[in-house]
Structures are given as C-alpha cells and as structure tokens.
C-alpha cells in the first residue's frame, strides 16, 4: 500500500506551523501519524499537504500545574504510560493508554492525535469526557479552550477549525477522594473497542459522590457522555456499610426503599446503556453493544470507587 502524492512540511515552530496551515490548501496536521498514515496508505485520505508538527519544540511535555494535568500535542501514549504522575494520580489515563493499539504503535501515537481524529472508536475521548477535560486549540488568532462536551461533533468531526492545532489537553487535577477507571472490551489486542467505558468519580470527605463523569467509546457517531448515568450516581454514598452509618443505611434501605449500592450502580449502568446508539457490525449486535456498555460501566464504577477509597489524603 502506497500513499498518494502530497507535499510534506516540517515546521520548526508553532508559529511556522500555523502560518503553513493558513497558507496551504488542503493541509492535514500530523503528529504521530499512526491514524493518518494508514488512511493515506489506503488512499481514503488524499490531502495535498501534510504539516508534520513532530519537530515543533515545546509540545511534548506532561506536567501538573495550576490545577491541571497538561498533555502537550506530541506526548505519546508510551510517554503517558511511563509518567510517574500519571501512574500515581491518573490511573484512568494509564488504563486508557494501555489498551490502545499495541506497544509499538503507542511509541509514536499521541494522545492529542487520538482525540483530534474525532473517531468515536478511539479510546481517549471517553476518558476525557469522564475527566471533564478541556481541549486547547491554537490557531491564527491564538489559543482558545474548548470544553470536551463541545469538542466532538460527529463521526471524524470535531470543533477544530482548519488552521487550528490541538496543542494541549488540560485535565482538572483530581480531588483527594477521587478515582477513575477505563475498561475496554476488544476482540483481540490492537482492536478498536467493541465498547468502552470511562468512569471518574469525585467524592467529598464523607464519601458522597460530588461529581461523576462517564464517557463511552464506539457506541455512537461520536464519543458519548452518559449524563443520566452521572446524575444517578451524583449525591449518592457508596460502600462503608460498617458501624452506625451502615446500620442506619440498612434501616433506611428497608424502610424508605432507598436503593442499595448495587441497585444504584445497575441503574446508572442501564442509563449509560440507554445513552448509546451503536450500529451492528462484526463486533456484535446493537443489543450486545448496549449491554456491553452496561456491563463495562458497572465494572468501571466499581473500580473507580475502589480507587477513590484507596486514595487517602496522605497518598495525595
């Protein structure tokens, strides 16, 4: 498979890259190239120009500052996997990176590329939805921030304008009592998801869910936020059924028919499934995929709760 002819540009600075994008017709931005190059080789994409931002300095850092984890445009999946801060504080990101393609592809593939491609089958978008990330697009008029909920417009379509580059993803730093998990069902290593669920939960001191984020992969034309499922979880208290609190709770469940943890989680997971709009393909039927959204959401909620419980203030 041979790519069609195109012109290649390797700007040495962000300004130069933006100038090129402004000047060139039919230009496509490339970072790691692991999504774009296969499309070129299949001749599904035939841009006249490729602007390779791989040599632009300053875009390859991951840092936690100002209340955000900032992931630059050139940060690879491997770099994310190897980052100590991510491993300690953002296990959901590690979950996500580790199930993308295979280790060799991840050596070149970038997180921003995964998001900017606008492919609902890609894994990071769901996680970014769960984490309520902000996308920073840089264009001829400078930077603008786009909330994740405004970013994905449909199949391969995002809020990025021609001439803009997704230069950074900003993820709000998690609170002390928070945890998240991403689970993906795949037919084999390297496959796109049959379904994927990202859940991120923030709890208060008492252990009540103050904010829930749930994103779903490959279950519709765009990555999906399961808002109704988030609402089911928000304000609820899970676990800790010992002592007086547990006793009260059991009494309340019995008398006032307060749903149990499992019932709540099942209700949230069903709400997540109801938010999907999958198509039948070789990965399964619509029914199967909806149910997998439910099953994976349940499992991801449990894992997120576990992680939130394990994250003691001392552990930061």
């Amino acid at each position: 498979m041979i790519p069609p002819p195109f012109d290649y540009h390797a700007p040495g600075s962000l300004e130069e890259a933006l100038t090129l994008l402004g000047r060139l017709d039919d230009a496509k931005v490339m970072s790691g190239g692991q999504s774009l190059l296969p499309m070129l080789k299949l001749r599904l994409a035939t841009p006249a120009n490729i602007v390779d931002i791989g040599r632009v300095p300053g875009l390859d850092s991951i840092s936690e500052e100002g209340g955000y984890l900032r992931i630059g445009a050139l940060v690879t999946e491997t770099a994310l996997e190897e980052n100590a801060t991510v491993a300690a504080r953002y296990p959901i990101l590690l979950d996500t990176a580790k199930v993308i393609a295979d280790p060799l592809v991840r050596n070149r593939a970038t997180i921003c590329g995964n998001v900017a491609h606008g492919d609902p089958a890609n894994d990071h978008p769901a996680t970014m939805i769960a984490l309520r990330a902000t996308m920073v697009a840089t264009g001829p008029d400078g930077e603008r921030s786009i909330g994740v909920d405004d970013f994905f417009h449909g199949l391969f379509m995002t809020a990025l304008q021609p001439g803009e580059i997704l230069t950074e993803i900003r993820i709000p730093s998690p609170g002390q009592h928070s945890g998240g998990a991403y689970l993906k069902l795949e037919r084999k290593v390297g496959d796109y998801a049959v379904a994927g669920a990202a859940v991120h939960l923030t709890l208060d001191e008492e252990g009540t869910v103050t904010q829930a984020g749930i994103g779903l992969t490959n279950l519709g034309m765009a990555p999906i936020r399961a808002s109704a499922a988030e609402e089911v979880l928000t304000g609820q208290h899970f676990g800790d059924h010992s002592g007086l609190r547990g006793a009260f709770r059991r009494v309340r469940e019995a008398i006032a028919r307060t749903p149990s943890d499992d019932e709540l989680i099942a209700a949230a997971s069903q709400a997540a499934a109801d938010a999907t709009d999958p198509v039948a393909d070789r990965r399964g039927s619509v029914d199967y995929k909806r149910n997998m959204a439910r099953v994976l959401t349940t499992r991801a909620i449990h894992k997120a709760l576990e992680r939130a419980a394990a994250r003691t203030p001392a552990g930061g």
Binding site: L185, R187, G284, D287, N291, M292
Partner: peptide, 16 residues
C-alpha cells in the same frame, strides 16, 4: 466470538 457466547447466555437468562 464473545457476542455469540453472550447471545446464548442472555437467551438463557444467565448473562450478568
């Protein structure tokens, strides 16, 4: 395939 197995489990009411 998993979807085939799940279809059987679901039809017999044992899918979780």
């Amino acid at each position: 395939r998993p979807d085939r197995v799940w279809g059987v489990l679901n039809a017999r009411g044992v899918a979780k």
